[in-house]
Amino acid sequence: MSVKVEVIEGGVPHNTILIAGVVSTLVCIYLTYLNVVTQTEMFSFFGGLAVVAALVWGSHTIKVLCSYGIGTGVPSAGMIAFGSGVIAMLYATRFGMLAPVVALILAAIIGLVLGWVSNNILNMKIPAMVQALTEMAVVGALTLMGFAALITGTFGFEGLTTGTVTMFGMTLLTHQNSFIGGCLIAVAFLLGAIAIQHPFNACLGPGWTQDRMLMLTAECAFLSMIVAAIMSFALISAGSAIISLVIAIIGWVYTYKEYMALSKRDAHSWLDSKPIPDVEGQ
């Protein structure tokens, strides 16, 4: 059995983050359904907020899992989260309004199987593995769905595979100019996979603090939302994309400043153009 090398001390318990993460992510994804109800694309930005909520929860799950010496780097956890999540997400998009719930259930099953395989067949025997991989598959699936809703304004299969192209003043339907046909899903995959693993990867060490890591996750998520909002200009109306972009920029500036303040609080010292300080005993 693997030895736990880091201990979580203080802060918000993981189960609270888990419940808050699931609820807020699902609520935000469903709020993008207002696009269908009101026949606009103005509510696409809720997809970006779902990404933020899911990633905050997911990065804490990575902290729980990678506190054990798992033998692979922290980035691998992000890759498996999205690798397992993308299958569930793509399948679930066929279920119309039920898509987010189907994605959650299907991803949980895939994660459970992967966790069982890791612990019992690959013999990794890490206590947190099954729950963590289950959670991360769900996070991966819901994050991708959030990106899909942010960029295209919908989470249905038709909307993700069909776009329009204007030729000589005529508007034609095409599969190439779409979220899946144009492979923007690959960009969403990597944006999420790096954003979910980076906070723990960047904050690990003896001086790890929960609030700093989670603030960094929110920062990474808003940063991803900025670029995803820019890509959404190609697929949704300019006004809706501008709303997403403005919200993302405000969120990113706030979280970046807060993260730097928290890092300043935790750092030993904050020096500008100074030589290496003397260490006692040298």
Partner: peptide, 14 residues
């Protein structure tokens, strides 16, 4: 910034 702040115990400045 994150990695260096986590090494505060060892006196590594940012």
């Amino acid at each position: 910034v994150g990695r260096t702040a986590s090494l505060a115990k060892f006196g590594q400045p940012v």
